[in-house]
Structure formats: C-alpha cells, structure tokens
Write a protein that binds this DNA or RNA. Structure first.
Length: 216
DNA sequence: TACCAGGTGGGAA
DNA sequence: TTCCCACATGGT
C-alpha cells in the first residue's frame, strides 16, 4: 500500500488533528511567539501524556509566561515547580533551559540545523524533528514509538529511527500539511487501536493490516 | 496494584 | 550498536 493511500484512510477516519495545539489568543495578547509554546511542549511531552503537559503549560501561563524568554530568565528551581505536573521535572527544567539558550534572536527555528539542534542536551531525534516540523515548518518527518509499532504491524516495515524517517520521506510528496497531519493521525490510531495489546477486532484497518490479516 | 504516557542520556555488554 | 535503567507525575 502506498503511504499516501494510508494517509487518506486515516484522514478520512479521524479528520484533521491540527497538531501542534497552540493558544494563539494567549500569544497575541502577551506578544509572545506561539512557536515557543511548541518548543516548550515538545520537551515537556517526552514520555508523558499530553494532559500532564497541559497542566504544566497552564502553570507557566498563570504564574510566569509561556515563552522561551521567560524560561531563559526564570530561576531553575521556580521552573521545576511550574512544570512539575509533566513529570521528570528535574531533567526537563534543565532541558528547557538548554533549548531556550539555543534559540535566541540569532538562532530562529525556521533556520536551525537538525545537527546543531541534536547537540542540545535533552533534545533527541524525535523532539528535534517535532520542533523543526511543527514550530519551524520544516519538512522533516517525526517518528515515535507509536509510528514504529504501527508500521511494524501494519506494513511490516521496521528499522532504526533514521531508516523509518527515510522511508516516509522518500515515499511521500514533500507537503507540510501531510507531514504534520500524518504523524498526528498515526499517533491517534495507535492510541485508539494499535496499542501494545492491539484491539484488532475493533480496528477498521484490520483488513489491510499485514499482521492482523483479513477478518472473516 | 501495575502499567502507560506525543523520550533521552549514560553506562554496560 | 544494542540493551537496560533512571527520570516522575497523573490517569485508568
């Protein structure tokens, strides 16, 4: 099956996911950059449910400011308290400080190099690609464990992060909308049905899945 | 109670 | 390179 066909199937099933969610009204009011919210959220969501990330983002809005400027200037211990609900707050606070130092007026996310971004402590491939795609509008496909699990089962495609990323990028047209939505749709489907213990009986893609096989 | 969530870094093999 | 573990809160 062509990836574009898979994308269409998922898009028809779940509709637009509109990743990355950003409070545009807040940023307009505060004069802050909505891209900062994506960058901060990308770090906070590492191995963490989005609900918990939202609590941390709310804390930043309410008791500080949802911006890299604020992250850069606030005391580390205060930052830890604010982001506590997102878990791993000690290392995430340090990582937020590091990424806030990386992005400054001379280093815009629209022009940042992936290699340089990966050198920032706490920014791995997935976080780097998520930042570049969703905050920087850069054509880089994001792979996560949902994508890896789904692709392994559905198309029997597996490999390293870079191999899977290359698989998507070489089989998809270079379209930002598709890159952004496809990743979000794969997550949505994996969360609903292609779980660690899959719900194949309820999955509407089961007839096309190379692992589940056709249902009777 | 146990497991999972929009991962990463460091150390051991 | 690959595997294993620590990192932490909150929901089911």
């Amino acid at each position: 099956m062509r990836l574009k066909r898979l994308f269409s199937l998922l898009y028809d099933l779940y509709g637009p996911q509109n990743w990355w969610p950003v409070d545009r009204q807040y940023h307009q009011l505060k004069g802050t950059d909505p891209r900062d919210e994506i960058i901060i959220g990308a770090v906070l969501t590492q191995n963490t449910s989005w609900k918990n990330v939202e609590r941390a983002l709310e804390n930043l809005k309410r008791e500080g400011e949802l911006s890299l400027n604020f992250v850069r200037s606030v005391e580390l211990e205060v930052l830890k308290e604010l982001i506590k609900p997102s878990g791993f707050y000690n290392q995430k606070a340090t990582r937020l400080k590091a990424i806030s130092e990386f992005f400054n007026p001379t280093q815009r996310v629209q022009e940042a190099s992936r290699e340089e971004l990966l050198k920032v402590k706490g920014i791995g491939k997935e976080t780097a690609d998520a930042i570049l795609l969703y905050a920087g509008d850069r054509l880089t496909f994001v792979i996560d464990k949902y994508t890896q699990r789904f692709m392994k089962r559905f198309l029997k495609v597996e490999g390293s992060y870079e191999e899977l990323k290359e698989f998507f990028e070489s089989n998809l047209e270079p379209d930002l909308f598709i890159y952004k939505e496809f990743h979000a749709l794969l997550d949505e489907h994996a969360k609903r049905y292609c779980r660690s213990i899959p719900l194949c009986e309820e999955c509407s893609l089961r007839n096309l899945c190379l692992s589940a096989g056709p249902s009777s």
